[in-house]
Amino acid sequence: MMTFDSMKELLTYCDTYQKSIAEAMMDMEMEKTGQIRDDIFQKMKDRLIKMQEAVDAGKSDASTAPSGISGGDAVKMGAYMESGEALSGNLIPRAMRYAMATSECNARMGVIVATPTAGSAGVLPGILFALRDRDQFSLDALTQGLFTASALGYIIANRSFISGAAGGCQAEVGSATAMAAGVIVELKGGTPQQAVHATAMAMKSLLGLVCDPVGGLVEVPCIKRNVIGTSIAFSSADMALAGIESRIPCDEVIETMYRVGSEMPRTLRETSLGGLATTPTGEEIKRTLHN
């Protein structure tokens, strides 16, 4: 049965058959499920459309989450972006706004698409719809991007982890950002090798990130970590597209994420028993929530 156990295997496949990472993933899915390409493509496109709906719902919604500790920042980011004064140009603030819109929607118990998880659902829609606005990518092109993302995430998830409880935030926002970096490279015409280098560089920059949600909610610091993940994804993609390579091969970076996560104390793995969750402010929020 065809599968990709490592980035090395994925790249060998892409090289042998002269295919993109997105095409390689569709080949695997067709072989595993026996479904035709059009059906698999449409199913992925349906998910993209749900992602777009979450962005559209979230970007102009100034309401707070039921907890009262998040919400309304996507609206602020939008106003700032439209002022034309944003320091990081037009693209990154746009991605930040869309990522924030999605993660705020998630906190309100709205409908989102887990990419790869709900806690990290902001990063991919952030970069995808910002690229759409900049380069007029079609929904089909962005759907290809989701196949690229799923191939990279599939290897990460099976060789390491994607849940904060198992491996900390490096496994969630870290994985999402690493996937997003590879997607940007492939959408912008980079090679599969360059995409995997971008994935490695993005993941390296988030190694060790702990999962410390205040009050046990997927809000503080989760939402802003998603937002900032988009800028790390673009920086990593820019390096890869400039021809810069990760000195440590991507498979070894993923293995490192696994080791670091395994050594991470339980207090820093989505138990809200450490990190920002146990700051004086974090404890105060928790007391208020539970009363």
């Binding site: 992925m44 887990a114 990419t115 799923s150």
Partner: peptide, 21 residues
Amino acid sequence: MEFQSCFDIIGPIMVGPSSSH
């Protein structure tokens, strides 16, 4: 190999806030 499909990574379509919780 717990994750077997592209839709295990991109998905599910779900109400928030946490895919595992």
